[in-house]
């Protein structure tokens, strides 16, 4: 099964969940998502998601100078982002439960 299409539907929630751990910048966010198991997540997809979430008022951002190169832009959750994550968590819980039960049904 192509997980890319599935990932598109949950990438917003995944990004918000990683940011709940603490503020971080784009490169580290991609790394954390991959370490969490989303091996195929695209860098551009993450940046596009960040732009959309930030534009929607769900994230904060802060420029922080870096000793290793250009300044990093740290993203973080604001109250709207936390509310969105709470709502998405409930939705995903219900969705995954329904899907698991459906798939667990034995053929008649």
């Amino acid at each position: 099964m192509d997980t890319t299409q599935l990932l598109k539907g949950v990438l917003d929630t995944a990004v918000l969940a990683v940011l709940r751990r603490g503020n971080t910048y784009g490169y580290d966010l991609v790394r954390q998502l991959r370490d969490s198991g989303f091996d195929d997540v695209g860098d551009a997809s993450v940046y596009g998601t960040l732009r959309r979430l930030f534009g929607g008022g769900y994230l904060t951002s802060e420029i922080v100078p870096s000793d290793e190169g250009p300044p990093r832009k740290y993203y973080g959750l604001n109250n709207a982002g936390r509310d969105m994550l709470d709502s998405a968590t409930k939705t995903w819980g219900h969705f995954s439960l329904v899907m698991s039960e459906l798939l667990a049904e034995e053929a008649v």
């Binding site: 991609v30 732009r51 832009k73």
Partner: peptide, 24 residues
């Protein structure tokens, strides 16, 4: 400019001569 800032920092973190190798 926002996108390019993020991308420039990302490419610097990759530390590769050619970013196409990682980013396509």
């Amino acid at each position: 400019e926002e996108v390019l800032q993020d991308l420039a920092a990302h490419i610097a973190e990759l530390g590769e001569d050619n970013p196409e190798a990682s980013l396509g």
